[in-house]
Design a binder for these strands. Structure first.
Lengths: 265, 265
DNA sequence: GCATCAATTTCGTCA
DNA sequence: TGACGAAGTTGATGC
């Protein structure tokens, strides 16, 4: 059963009592407040007084949001101890996390609104498509998209210090170490491929080993480094792969937006 | 002037009107709702029906939060077009972003609570301490903390494909490329330093070049790779540097937690 | 606008 | 639990 309690423009005494009991009951709490914020832990920060949205989740996660932007200005991923106390005509909301030790303090001077919701239930599955492993899976099943005649030896082959996405053999019998990226490949991707190729060469001293970086695009610097290292780049159209992969798995359940929502609604 | 409007357990017609007008007025909107979510854009995702907190900021940022965890399950950093329509006994909240084209759809089947706050004001400054550049700045001013007799040649020296944090000369006249990390250094940090050292060697063929990774800690694998590459590791106490740097700039204003909050309150 | 790098990154996964 | 790599990473800076 979901219950909702709220206060509009409460005085600080009332707000303090309300927030304290909501925290104790592990409610989802949302406050629009005027406050200052201080954080000490892995980093350290101070934020002067202003209007913010403060969210406290049932699991102790705390978020402080300014009126703009996607990301919270301060936060606590999960807090082990939350205390709410009156101090000097204000409310001091303090969230402490251990390991790593981090303290987030919100000094509230005014409460525009506060709402506490109890009993929110969410056990739905979250499904993501079009991630890197999905693309690598598809390419491993269809290596011709990378190079004609390629034969996949292994998917996610462990090499020292990581995993090569795909290891294959080309028409001339040479090993091909393949690194797949779903976004523009940068220097990091080249270094990663280079490292895997070197490790693979070390482990297979007699073999000829090529390295191919498969990505929808590559930065200029990365391409320059890649070629200077004797490695290769192969463009792939991610959207096309996503579409094809979707077709392949259409028997295992519909994935269209409306079908999905209709199924659950 | 800050104004607050809200509805508790409204029917969907009332909620639809309320949300529509709040979006039009660029209010900060917070809803506790039962909903399904679909996203298509750089990636793609589906989330079945469940209870969530939906936040719409005045700048068009949209966040969907489940009852647990720090991060939103779906979001839109800023949307150019937000539409709210009734559809089949539900509310379809749709946020579209262009460049990159991304669509976030929230299909709301029940509204537990919705609040719209108008006129939130937040122009306070956000100050961060203890970040990497601060540490590198301090070390560049006090290179003796890394090695006795070190003389700094340059801070943030551009090398091909990146920047070396510090370049110095040691007592024997050898170049020292220094990479600074403020958290435990991993394999990536080693690869980064190695790359800069190699590039620097290439550009200064005749010179002797050392490489030092400066960090509060280093992983076992990273240390192993580092030594095998002929590079060096130097431990630094980040907290101590932070403290000393704070002392150095104490003339430019107090930074203690209470002082800061007292100043603004 | 692109490229690069840090982040209180967060988040999964695997040894 | 620690280490390592990916992220719809985000965000800032330099060119």
């Amino acid at each position: 059963m979901t219950t909702v309690k709220y206060l509009a423009e409460p005085d600080l005494d009332k707000a303090h009592n309300f927030i304290s009991s909501a925290v104790a009951q592990r409610d989802m709490i949302v406050m629009a407040v005027k406050c200052s914020v201080a954080y000490e832990g892995r980093g350290a920060s101070r934020l002067g007084e202003g209007d913010r949205l403060v969210i406290v989740k049932p699991d102790g996660a705390v978020l402080v949001h300014r009126p703009t932007g996607y990301s919270p200005v301060n936060w606590q991923p999960d807090s082990h101890v939350i205390t709410v106390e009156k101090q000097d005509g204000r409310i001091l909301f303090r969230s402490v996390r251990k390991r790593p030790r981090e303290v987030l303090e919100i000094l509230i001077s005014r409460v525009y609104f506060v709402v506490a919701i109890h009993g929110l239930l969410d056990d739905a599955e979250f499904i993501e498509y079009l991630d890197e492993s999905e693309i690598a899976d598809y390419l491993a099943r269809h290596p011709d998209l990378i190079e004609e005649g390629l034969r996949v030896v292994r998917r996610e082959r462990p090499v020292e210090g990581g995993y090569a996405d795909i290891v294959a053999v080309d028409k001339q019998g040479r090993y091909v170490v393949i690194e797949v990226k779903r976004v523009t490949a940068g220097i990091d991707a080249v270094k990663q491929l280079h490292r895997y190729v070197e490790m693979f060469r070390k482990a297979n001293a007699e073999a000829k080993v090529r390295g191919i970086l498969v990505a929808p695009a590559i930065t200029k610097d990365a391409l320059s480094l890649l070629t200077s290292l004797g490695l290769e780049y192969k463009h792939v159209d991610v959207a096309r792969i996503h579409k094809k992969a979707k077709q392949e798995r259409r028997h295992s359940g519909s994935l269209s937006l409306l079908d999905f929502i209709g199924k659950r609604g």
